[in-house]
Simulated scan of single mutants.
Amino acid sequence: MSLAITGKTAIITGAAHGIGLAIARHFIDRGAHVMCADIDEAKLNAEFGDEARNDGPVRIFAGDLCQKLTVNNLLSATVDAYDRIDILINSARAFAPCDPLEPIQDVLEDMLRQNMMGALRLSQMTAKRMISLAEKENRTTGEVGTIINVSTLAAQRAQPELLAYSIACAAQDQATRSLAVALAPYRIRVNGVSFASVMSASLQAALKENGDWREAIVAGTPMGRIAPPSELAETVQYLASSGAGFVTGQVIQVDGGRSVIDPIAVPVY
Score class of each variant (00 low, 15 high):
residue 1 M to R: 12
residue 3 L to P: 00
residue 5 I to E: 03
residue 7 G to D: 07
residue 8 K to F: 10
residue 11 I to A: 01
residue 15 A to P: 00
residue 15 A to E: 01
residue 16 A to N: 02
residue 24 A to N: 01
residue 24 A to K: 00
residue 28 I to F: 08
residue 30 R to C: 03
residue 31 G to N: 06
residue 32 A to Q: 02
residue 35 M to I: 11
residue 37 A to H: 01
residue 38 D to M: 04
residue 40 D to C: 02
residue 40 D to T: 02
residue 41 E to T: 10
residue 42 A to L: 03
residue 44 L to K: 04
residue 45 N to Y: 07
residue 50 D to M: 05
residue 50 D to Q: 14
residue 54 N to K: 12
residue 55 D to F: 09
residue 57 P to K: 10
residue 58 V to K: 03
residue 59 R to I: 02
residue 60 I to R: 00
residue 63 G to H: 08
residue 68 K to C: 09
residue 69 L to G: 11
residue 71 V to G: 01
residue 73 N to D: 15
residue 73 N to S: 13
residue 79 V to L: 06
residue 81 A to Y: 03
residue 81 A to S: 14
residue 84 R to W: 12
residue 88 L to P: 03
residue 88 L to Q: 05
residue 92 A to C: 04
residue 93 R to I: 07
residue 95 F to I: 05
residue 98 C to E: 10
residue 104 I to T: 13
residue 104 I to F: 12
residue 105 Q to A: 14
residue 112 L to Q: 11
residue 113 R to C: 11
residue 115 N to Q: 08
residue 117 M to Q: 14
residue 118 G to P: 07
residue 122 L to T: 09
residue 122 L to Y: 13
residue 123 S to Y: 02
residue 124 Q to K: 12
residue 126 T to S: 13
residue 127 A to Q: 04
residue 130 M to W: 05
residue 130 M to R: 01
residue 131 I to E: 15
residue 138 N to T: 06
residue 140 T to H: 13
residue 145 G to K: 06
residue 150 V to T: 12
residue 150 V to I: 14
residue 150 V to S: 04
residue 151 S to T: 15
residue 153 L to F: 14
residue 153 L to Q: 11
residue 155 A to C: 04
residue 157 R to P: 09
residue 161 E to Q: 14
residue 163 L to F: 14
residue 165 Y to N: 09
residue 171 A to S: 14
residue 173 D to N: 15
residue 173 D to P: 01
residue 174 Q to G: 07
residue 179 L to P: 11
residue 180 A to N: 05
residue 182 A to H: 12
residue 186 Y to T: 05
residue 191 N to Y: 00
residue 195 F to D: 06
residue 197 S to V: 03
residue 198 V to R: 00
residue 199 M to W: 02
residue 199 M to I: 01
residue 202 S to N: 12
residue 206 A to K: 09
residue 208 K to E: 15
residue 210 N to G: 06
residue 213 W to G: 08
residue 213 W to A: 09
residue 216 A to Q: 15
residue 217 I to Q: 02
residue 221 T to D: 10
residue 228 P to V: 07
residue 232 L to C: 07
residue 233 A to T: 04
residue 234 E to H: 13
residue 235 T to G: 09
residue 236 V to F: 06
residue 238 Y to D: 03
residue 240 A to E: 00
residue 244 A to Q: 06
residue 248 T to S: 15
residue 253 Q to E: 15
residue 254 V to I: 11
residue 260 V to R: 10
residue 262 D to C: 08
residue 263 P to Y: 13
residue 269 Y to W: 14
